[in-house]
Amino acid sequence: MKRIWLFFSMFFVVFGINNVFAQQISIGFGYGMSNAQMTGLKSVNRTTLANLPFKAKQVENFPSAQEYNFEFNASIFKKYSLGVCYNYFSTGSRISSIDYSGEYRFDNISTNTSYGFINKFSIFEAKAFLIQFTAAFGWYKSKFKLTEVLNLYQTQSNQYENKFESKGMFIKPGIDILYSFKFIKIGLYGSYYSNTENEISLSRNNSLKLVVPNTNHKVKTDWKGFQYGIKFLISSFNSKNK
């Protein structure tokens, strides 16, 4: 909670600075795809699958999934702007088996929410084209919902659901390539997301950690991966100095 207050405090400070010094303020949305290594959770899936007494398959295993981001920044210098950013990413995995006698599923829905500061450096400008180096950093919060379902002959039904979470820091360097139409910029972005690998705890009891079955190795968050997509920016405010 402290971090959220800190984030918004920083946001309004920046907003205020922008009102005083910024020449341009922009709001942007990003939408794209994101990869995540998820090393620990994949290990959980492998072990779980291997331990199942019946034939099953890993039908999904943390694939590339949609990623959303939002940013708000103001130019401080001619080629430098500073702002706040928000990022949301969700992926999942499933082990599945369905036959005449029943069905079994072991699902894992993982979401990651990141918020922090974003720095932008204009490294190339030519007419309407703009290339920027971006560097975001901040905090992340991950949530994992693990659900195991076993239904037999429509008479027996067992469902176990556990929610886990993890928190830490992230850093995300990247490149934006934009094209300007008046006060609108449209372009592509690419970045690499890296986070501190922290233990995953049971939401209702932080002292219980998620471990890999059999080995009891503690599972850690691993969202590291590339993100890419399209970006849409609106520069709705003119500089007071113009």
Binding site: K57, E60, Q66, R94, S96, E103
Partner: peptide
């Protein structure tokens, strides 16, 4: 926009 699992394995 939470991820939705859709595939299944039919044995």
């Amino acid at each position: 926009c939470e991820y939705e699992l859709q595939d299944d394995f039919y044995n």
